[in-house]
Design a binder for these strands. Structure first.
Lengths: 161, 161
DNA sequence: TATTGTTATACTCTATAACTATA
DNA sequence: TATAGTTATAGAGTATAACAATA
C-alpha cells in the first residue's frame, strides 16, 4: 500500500526528475488545501444548518462538553468576547447550552452543553456526509498515513500570533 | 522517508494490533480535519483581513482571473445570487474588480479582476503564514505523499448535492 | 485598577421575496 | 414565460467602544 502511494506520487507528476521548480509541490499543495478546506467547511456549515445552527454556533457547541467561561470561548472561536454573548444567547434560547455562575469568581459565567446540546453536536459530527464520503475513498492504511502527516501540520497551523 | 511514515503511524497508536475498533482511525481523522480546516480557514481570513478584505471577498477575487458572470460567482461561492451584488459592489468600489456587460446576452454582467485585484489575491496567497509554516514542517517527499492523498479526497468532498 | 460579561453601534454576509431588463 | 441582475428586508456574525459588577 505504501508502494501504491509511491505510484500515486509518480502519477501526480510531482516527482518527475525533470521538474525544475521544487516549490511547485508546495504551491500546488497550498491551492489544494484551500480548495479542500473550503469544501470541508461548506460541508460542516451545511450539516449544522440541517439542525438549524450556524457554523459558529456548532463550533461553540462542540467546545462546551465541559464548562468553559465566556472569555475562553471567545479565544477558542477567535472572535471578540462581545460576540459570544449573542451566540450563547441563541443556543441557550434553544435549550442546547446553559450558563452557570462560577462560585470562585462571581464575575465568570461558565457555559456547558445540555444533554440535547451534546446529542446535537454528535449528530452533526456523524452527518458530515461529504467528509465521510471523502474519507471512505481511502483504505485504512492510507488514512493512517494521512493522519500522521496532518498531525505534523498541526503545530504550524494552530500557532496563532 | 516512507519508513519514517510507517514509524509515525505506529507512534500515533493507530495501527496497534490490539485496536478493536477499525473506525477509530476515521473518527480521529475527521476530528483532525475539522481542527486543521478551522485553523487553515482562520489563517485565510486573517491574511485577507490584512488587505482589508473579508474571506468571502478574497474568495470571489480569486475566482475572477477570467471574466465570470454574477450568476456563476454565486454558484462558486455557494450563496444566493442576490449576495454577489453587494460583494462585487464593495470590491469594485476599491478598484479590485470591474463589471463588463456581455455582448451576446445583455442581461449578463461579467466580473473580472483589475491588475490591482490580481496582485492583491496573489499577495494573500503568498502571505498565509500559518499555512506556509505548516507545509515547511514537511519534507518535499512528504508533501508529495500528502498531495496524492488529498487529491483522492477531493471528489468526495467537492461533490455537492 | 484590572477583569468579566454585557450592551450599543455599525458593517458585512446570508436567504427570501419582489422588481427590471432582457431573452 | 423564463432568466440575469438588482433591491428591500430581516437575521446572524463581527469589531469597537462604553458600561456594571466583581476582583
Amino acid at each position: 500500500m505504501i508502494e501504491d502511494l509511491k505510484l500515486f506520487s509518480r502519477l501526480a507528476g510531482m516527482t518527475a526528475p525533470t521538474d525544475p521548480a521544487p516549490s511547485a509541490v508546495k504551491s500546488r499543495l497550498l491551492d489544494l488545501m484551500v480548495a479542500l478546506g473550503t469544501a470541508h467547511w461548506q460541508d460542516y456549515a451545511a450539516t449544522a444548518a440541517q439542525h438549524g445552527l450556524t457554523s459558529v454556533q456548532a463550533r461553540l457547541l462542540a467546545q462546551v462538553t465541559a464548562p468553559v467561561p465566556m472569555r475562553g470561548l471567545a479565544e477558542q472561536l477567535g472572535c471578540d468576547a462581545s460576540n459570544v454573548t449573542g451566540i450563547v444567547d441563541r443556543l441557550q434560547a434553544r435549550g442546547l447550552v446553559v450558563r452557570e455562575s462560577d462560585e470562585r469568581d462571581r464575575r465568570v459565567k461558565n457555559v456547558v452543553a445540555t444533554d440535547e446540546g451534546l446529542a446535537t453536536i454528535q449528530r452533526i459530527r456523524a452527518e458530515m456526509q461529504a467528509t465521510h464520503t471523502a474519507l471512505d475513498a481511502l483504505t485504512e492504511d492510507e488514512r493512517v498515513t494521512l493522519y500522521a502527516l496532518l498531525e505534523r501540520l498541526r503545530p504550524g497551523l494552530e500557532n496563532r500570533d
